Amino acid sequence: MQYADLHTHTLASDGTQPPTENVRLALAAGLGAVAITDHDTVAGIEEALKAGETMGITVVPGVEISTVAGGTDIHVLGYFIDYRSTQLLDRLEELRRTRDRRNELILERLNELGLQLTMDDVIASLKVSKKADETIGRPHIADALVRKGYVGSMSEAFDRYLGKDGAAYVNPPRIEPQTAVQWIREAGGVPVLAHPGLYDQDGLIAELAEQGLAGLEVYHSDHTPEQEAHYLAIAERLGLIVTAGSDFHGERNGVVFHAPIGARKVEMKAVEQLIQAKESRP
């Protein structure tokens, strides 16, 4: 029986590996499929699809769209999108501009706290230079904080400064998750709510399901077994596709963030269900 990891990141956003390496790691983990779901960009999909053809593994083209609801970051995954859609590309560019502004605000807050860190420092910590359609995120800032010696690890950077309860956390206005669901559907894709256990907004799931949400990421590296059982019950009650993802971001300073590819996986049936949901659209 083959499995799929439906949530991984590459160098196109805040991962540390090129898309080809994600595909190779998925193959090494014995998976039948892997999704490329970078933050607010589809720049890594073409390379991954070519690698998938070469290695004989299914690559699911995807994206992870950043939204806000109730003051909380909410991420919506989109699968089997038309990643060449000019409308989608324009919308993702708009989201990246908001992301860039958030990064500036975080750095301003860090400087106010006495941590001297600039965007040049963050860029200097990157493995490769960023293209215009790729993103810089909080893990890059966390890595720069580690390199400057302000914190000892990525997790400490998020706990003390960059996470929701961190001293430098900022959350500028963004689109709502309902809008992300609409955008994904308009791009021919299938919208799935990412890691619901991180939000404490269970009421949002049913609301989004009424507006076109098709699936729920029940199994995630940051979910406890109790949360997975809880969200499995919700997905079954609402008739949502059950997905799983490691949320792999690669390795930094010897630590894999969030977890290795394949650490959370779901049967290939979920991929088939996503395809069916796409094809059954009116």
Rank of each mutant, 00 (worst) to 15 (best):
A206L: 12
Q227Y: 08
G212N: 09
H223Y: 07
L213H: 05
K269E: 14
L198Y: 06
A194S: 05
D247L: 05
G239A: 08
V256Y: 10
E207H: 13
D202E: 05
S246F: 04
L193E: 09
A209T: 01
L204K: 02
L232T: 12
E272V: 13
G197A: 13
P225H: 00
K265D: 01
A259F: 10
K278M: 13
A194Q: 12
P225L: 00
R185K: 15
A233F: 07
Q273E: 15
A244W: 02
P225M: 03
R237N: 05
D202N: 14
G245F: 00
A214S: 12
E251K: 15
I184V: 10
A259L: 07
A270N: 09
V181F: 15
E217K: 09
D202W: 07
D202L: 04
Q276V: 12
F248P: 01
L238N: 05
L204A: 01
H249N: 02
P191Q: 10
Q273T: 05
P260C: 12
G212M: 04
D202G: 03
L232K: 03
K278A: 13
L204D: 01
V255D: 10
H223T: 03
L198A: 14
G212F: 11
E217W: 05
G189K: 01
G212S: 06
D222K: 13
V271C: 03
G245W: 04
E217L: 04
E210K: 15
G254Q: 05
L216E: 06
G254A: 08
G203Y: 13
A194C: 02
A214H: 08
I275M: 14
W183P: 00
A277W: 05
G197T: 02
Y231G: 06
L238M: 14
G215P: 07
E251D: 09
P191W: 03
L193D: 12
A235V: 03
D200Y: 04
I275V: 15
A244S: 05
T243G: 00
V266E: 08
L204W: 01
Y199L: 11
D247W: 00
A187M: 10
E226W: 01
Q276K: 14
H195T: 04
E279H: 14
A233K: 15
P196I: 10
R237S: 11
A206M: 08
E217I: 05
Q211P: 02
A277D: 10
D222R: 11
G245T: 02
I205P: 00
Q182F: 12
H195Q: 00
A214L: 10
Q227A: 11
R264G: 09
H249M: 07
H249Y: 11
A259P: 14
W183S: 09
G203L: 06
E226T: 04
E228Y: 04
L274Y: 10
I241T: 08
R185S: 14
G212L: 12
W183C: 06
I205Q: 00
Q227S: 14
Y219L: 07
R185L: 15
G262C: 01
